[in-house]
Computed example of a mutant assay.
Amino acid sequence: MTARWPSDGLPAVGKSTSPVRQSQARKAAAGQIVHGRASLTKTVLGTSGLAVLLILWWVGTDVIATPLSFVGHFSPTSAFATLAQLVTQSDLPVHILVSLRRVAVGLGLALLIGVPLGLAVGSYSHLNAATSPAFQFLRMISPLSWMPIAVMVFGVGDRPIYFLLTFAAIWPILLNTAEGVKNLEPNWLRLASSLSATRWETLRHIIVPGVLGHVLTGLRLAIGIVWIVLVPCEMLGVSAGLGYFILDTRDRLAYSELTATVLIIGLLGFLLDAGARELYRMSGRDR
């Protein structure tokens, strides 16, 4: 018996026999290279923009400003030096955790209220027509204008802050969810109907997955709004939080600590938005 080698007609082990697969592999590799270069370019440009902002800040407070001027108290050199002390030797981390907890509660309540309302409004045209003017009217009212009423109704403490943050966050979530329902592929709904799917099955398997991208977009917008509203809300009869810490540094004339806290607020807001973008990407809706 003679051995059969690859030259006898059998394909060689480890060699690709499909030109189509080779072409697909080359295209995939080229796509990864292009995507990597685009990501690198985006990172470099973003870092450059932040560097320019930092340079402008430094020039305005350390270079242009006259010596011993009041503006010098807000310079980046003193702010970054104070920042390390605040993170390690003060109760700033406690205030950060308190603020993040309030944001989480406000966003959670907004999701619990806004998503079901958005699904209902987007599913029923008559309900949409009846509620749209009222929703548009309410969402144009600044959440901060409700602060005196919130204190009178809920008293001082966390409850008025939860109300204000929920009120601020609910509108982008509700309206984006409703828009997602309206933009659902009609063929999906027809398919569910032809398969005799129940209303609950249609909601679970068609509507909710179909509007998830819109919900996450609304959540990202809500995070930006809530983070902006949070600081003035925490200047309202509470004893903890970043807003309270800002007032405390002002009263103590600790201007470098105030500037460092502003940096912390900006950094945390940036990270929250980055987390929302990553959640959107992981959901498979990123384009």
Rank of each mutant, 00 (worst) to 15 (best):
V121E: 06
G122E: 02
S123D: 00
Y124Q: 13
H126S: 15
H126I: 11
L127N: 09
N128F: 08
A129L: 14
A130N: 12
A130S: 14
S132F: 09
A134L: 15
F135V: 15
Q136T: 10
Q136C: 00
Q136M: 13
Q136G: 03
F137D: 11
R139E: 02
M140I: 05
S142D: 06
P143V: 04
L144R: 02
S145K: 01
W146G: 06
W146P: 05
W146R: 10
W146T: 11
P148D: 03
P148L: 07
I149S: 10
I149M: 13
I149C: 01
A150E: 00
A150R: 00
A150N: 01
V151S: 02
M152L: 15
M152F: 12
V153Q: 04
V153W: 08
V153N: 02
G157N: 02
D158F: 03
R159F: 11
P160T: 03
I161D: 01
F163P: 09
L165T: 00
T166L: 02
F167W: 13
A168K: 03
W171K: 09
P172E: 00
I173H: 11
L174H: 09
L175D: 03
G180P: 10
V181Q: 07
V181R: 10
K182E: 08
N183S: 14
W188F: 12
W188C: 08
L189Q: 13
L191Q: 14
L191D: 05
L191S: 15
